[in-house]
Design a protein around this nucleic acid. Structure first.
Length: 837
RNA sequence: GGGGCGGUGGCGAAACGGUAGACGCAGCGGACUUAAAAUCCGCCGGAGGAAUACUCCGUGUGGGUUCGAAUCCCACCCGCCCUACCA
């Protein structure tokens, strides 16, 4: 196709100007129409989402916000594309559930109470009120009648109920352990909430300390193996990798060593094939056997070392760079495979929290053991021979750790066998000889859920002098958080001092007992919120099973990557536990997941109040209207990547909506109609439907908006030239509105109404394209010589390879570059010919 | 140390192994206006050239595979994120 060169048409130019002047009084006023339609949608219950077994369902979920007080642009960035996708699915014919709520327990509320004397409840609910309004201004299709707030007693009753159920099923337990404690927040933390090299608190950044406390745990490790299976969900590889690494599965063997006095010491190793090279053992300072086996002459220094390790912060202790330290206990163990007598040491590089808290040390084939052996002059015995190495090469200068290259030496029956597969063979041999057994260890720890704070769901447990920890019976739930409390400047939980709360009776024997004063980690609340949304007022269970049958599980989840190893593991754990309790009949809470990126400040840095680079959505909505803000957020970058905010960039989408406003209201009168122009506009319309549909499917919102802009450009061209039939014009304009409806719901609704179309545009069927109409009549045949473009020829579409080849060879421009017969000619169907000289 | 993601015009970005830079922003020239804003028309990767003829160079760097590479492979540099004595 020759590109249509349009001449400027003065008549229509003048007409356009006249029309534009007319619109001055009737111009696009987002504030007015947005408020109007938000109200109408609410009045007509347009977004009420009800079970309809005749329609396929789609449960779209976006991560619920914490009610911090103001809706951040990041919330808009997470929610508006999710909303657009949900609207798209609805127009595609799905019955879509798209709920919203608040993760309303948590520390900031309590800190505000301490700092400014406002009660956490008052602070939280005032914030929720404010944020609800802001959320409404987005024009999202949230069904507000399904709103759930985790700090409502009607919600946390069921959080507590889940606690009791987990306890009943052996998935919750209490134990004394050295746990991470944030001195600033005055509470213990889950392992996942301790971040970074300096091991700081996720919330406030203060380095954590270790404390020995009785705490409640959820047994996430019970599902460690199943959590590694992602075969039933379509989640980003990145999240799967992060979870896999976090769970950290290692396969090896448990081997029992014995001290000379016969005390057994169990160790876990991933390298049973190096057993013959174990030249000493190391116990963690906290290991229970340390005290027993230490000989009198070493008692003093061992005790001192253990004391010192206990006092040392995790930062120092767990830093890999630090030089390893340790002390000899005076005791010896017998290596079970070769009966060698090997010394037992205590060193803090061995952690009590992993494996059994004791290791066999094989300095020749483990970097840490090598460094330790060198420092303390312990023997290094090589048992895996590196290919090409001989005895003449002298002692090893570093640990040789390959599991694939080399063969075993000095290893009894295994001497001479290749290292590849040796671990498995040795494990089998250990089992046959009763020396050890195959074992699997996970890095994943059980989830510590106790928090020494007030603003959370109370752990529903009573401590009876007779019966110990007794769960509160279901009919007495919820254990209500008392409101008449006084906040300590230290951050200490006021529950501890609330006499009426603490003192109760044992549910079993009615003896005076004390209530648990710890509350649950807020991640417990958010582990099951997707179920509460189904029926937030239901009071016979956490959710109405009738609703569950229809809506569950979540089909599409969207949210930030930062929850990969926290919320997203916890909620999977919850669902698996719920399945095993018979509450649901599926294995995974969310079938598909998509992670959006982050909007950065205009300076390219993470937005923060202290940097002063925060973009306030309220101001933007005030200035441009919600539709423009939505369109810009979807347009400016790939959704999964995000990027810096750009003040000028928003003008593009603003002009788009402005143009759409004028186009849709334009009283089109055809002038001199050309068949070619008709065909071209229809083609563009149908191509755009195809492009936008595909882009919505794959979350490529930026190119979807770009495609609509292109259609806008074509429609403006037709407006100027007045060279298409009215029917073609109408088709283009109506489809443009339909395609834009999920992105800019207000303006499209308004224009749809103004054009006399039935309410609501959001209930219309998503447009379909006709491949025949969308097809190109001509193609640009690219002709290359040796891979370099030498000509571009417009030819009719659908010609066979031979024809394209002869057209290409006939080109004068191409002939210039040829001398004689080409060696080879490659034809790419309907696209390109490459001539190889 | 390990793992992941990314590096394309002045900027945000497009591009099933097949015309690099769609779409948008900014900029420049022009129209309209007393003027500005808005709007409209045109140009817009770099070099050479009077040129909308044409040629060469261009997707972080260096190699490789291929008729053909931003795209696939190897090595390296830079940026961001996660993880880190896990036996």
């Amino acid at each position: 196709m020759r590109k249509l060169k349009f001449r400027k048409d003065n008549f229509h130019q003048a007409k356009l100007e006249a029309i534009r002047r007319l619109f001055m009084t009737n111009s696009y006023n987002p504030q007015e129409i947005e408020a109007k339609w938000q109200q109408k949608w609410e009045e007509t219950g347009l977004y009420r989402q009800k079970i309809d077994w005749d329609k396929p369902k789609h449960y779209a979920l976006t991560m619920l916000p914490y009610p911090s007080g103001d809706l951040h642009i990041g919330h808009w960035y997470a929610m508006t594309p999710s909303d657009a996708r949900a609207r798209f699915m609805r127009m595609k014919g799905y019955n879509v559930l798209f709920p919203m709520g608040f993760d309303a327990f948590g520390l900031p509320a309590e800190n505000a109470a301490i700092k400014r004397g406002i009660h956490p409840k008052k602070w939280t609910y005032a914030n929720i009120e404010r944020m609800r309004k802001q959320l409404r201004s987005m024009g999202a299709m949230f069904d507000w009648e399904r709103e759930a707030i985790s700090s409502d007693p009607s919600y946390y009753k069921w959080t507590q109920w889940f606690f009791c159920k987990l306890l009943e099923h052996g998935l919750a337990y209490r134990k004394k352990a050295a746990v991470d404690f944030c001195p600033q927040c005055n509470t213990t933390l889950a392992r996942e909430q301790v971040w970074g090299e300096d091991r700081h608190c996720e919330r406030c950044g203060t380095p954590v300390i270790k404390k020995d406390l009785e705490q409640w745990f959820f047994k996430t490790t019970a599902y460690a193996e199943e959590l590694l299976d992602f075969s039933k969900i379509d989640w980003p590889e990145r999240v799967r990798i992060m979870q896999t690494n976090w769970i950290g599965k290692s396969v090896g063997a448990d081997v029992v060593f014995h001290t000379e006095d016969g005390d057994p010491i169990e160790i876990f190793t991933t390298r049973p094939d190096t057993l013959w090279g174990a030249t000493f053992m190391v116990l963690a300072p906290e290991h229970p056997l340390v005290e027993k086996i230490t000989t009198p002459e070493y008692k003093e220094q061992v005790t001192a070392y253990v004391e010192q390790a206990r006092r040392m912060s995790d930062i120092d202790r767990e830093s890999a760079e630090r030089e390893k330290t340790g002390v000899f206990t005076g005791a010896y163990a017998i290596n079970p495979v070769n009966k060698e007598r090997i010394p037992i040491w205590v060193a803090d590089y061995v952690l009590m929290t992993y494996g059994s808290g004791a290791i066999m040390a094989v300095p020749a084939h483990d970097e840490r053991d090598f460094a330790f052996a060198q420092k303390y002059g312990l023997p290094i015995v090589e048992v895996i021979r590196m290919p090409g190495r001989t005895d003449e090469d002298g002692p090893l200068t570093e640990a040789y750790t390959s599991k694939t290259e080399g063969h075993l030496i000095n290893s009894g029956p295994f001497t001479g066998t290749p290292v590849a597969g040796a671990a498995e063979r040795v494990t089998a041999w250990l089992e046959e000889n009763g020396l050890g057994k195959k074992a699997v260890n996970y890095r994943l720890r059980d989830w510590l859920i106790s928090r020494q704070r007030y603003w959370g769901a109370p752990i529903p447990v009573v401590y009876c002098p007779e019966h110990g920890a007794v769960p509160v019976p279901e009919e007495e739930l919820p254990v209500v958080l008392p409101e008449d409390v006084e906040f300590m400047p230290t951050g200490e939980s006021p529950l501890k001092f609330h006499e009426a709360f603490i003192h109760t009776t044992c549910p079993i024997c009615e003896r005076p007992s004390l209530r648990e004063t710890d509350t649950m980690d807020t991640f417990v609340c958010s582990s099951w919120y997707q179920y509460r949304y189904l029926s937030p007022h239901y009071d016979e269970g956490p959710f109405d099973p009738e609703e569950g049958k229809y809506w569950l599980p979540v089909d599409q989840y969207t949210g930030g990557i930062e929850h990969a190893t926290m919320h997203l593991i916890y909620t999977r754990f919850f669902t698996k536990a719920m399945r095993d309790m018979g509450l649901v009949d599926f294995d995974e809470p969310m079938l598909a997941l998509y992670n959006q990126g982050m909007v950065l400040g205009p300076d390219g840095e993470k937005m923060s109040k202290s940097r002063g680079n925060v973009i306030a959505p309220d101001d933007l909505v005030q200035q441009y209207g919600a539709d423009t803000v939505r369109a810009y957020l979807m347009f400016f970058a790939r959704w999964d990547q995000g990027g810096p905010w750009n003040y000028d960039g928003i003008k593009g989408p603003q002009r788009l909506l402005q143009d759409v406003w004028e186009i849709a209201r334009y009283d089109y009168v055809p002038g001199e109609v050309s068949k070619e122009a008709n065909r071209a506009l229809r083609r563009k319309t149908h191509q755009t439907i195809r492009k936008v549909t595909e882009d919505f499917e794959s979350f490529a919102f930026n190119t979807a908006v770009a495609a609509i802009m292109e259609l806008r450009n074509s429609v403006l061209e037709a407006m100027r030239m007045a060279n298409v039939d009215t029917a073609v014009w109408e088709e283009a304009v109506n489809n443009m509105l339909l395609l834009l409806a999920p992105i800019a719901p207000h303006i499209t609704e308004e224009l749809w109404a103004q054009r006399g179309q039935p309410y609501s545009i959001h209930q219309q069927a998503w447009p379909t394209w006709d491949p025949e109409v969308a097809k190109e009549d001509t193609i640009t045949l690219v002709v290359q010589v040796n891979g370099k473009v030498r000509d571009k020829i417009e030819v009719a579409a659908g010609q066979d390879d031979e024809t394209l080849k002869s057209i290409a060879l006939a080109s004068e421009k191409v002939q210039k570059w040829l001398d004689g017969e080409p060696r080879k000619v490659i034809v790419v169907k309907g696209k390109l010919v490459n001539i190889v000289k």
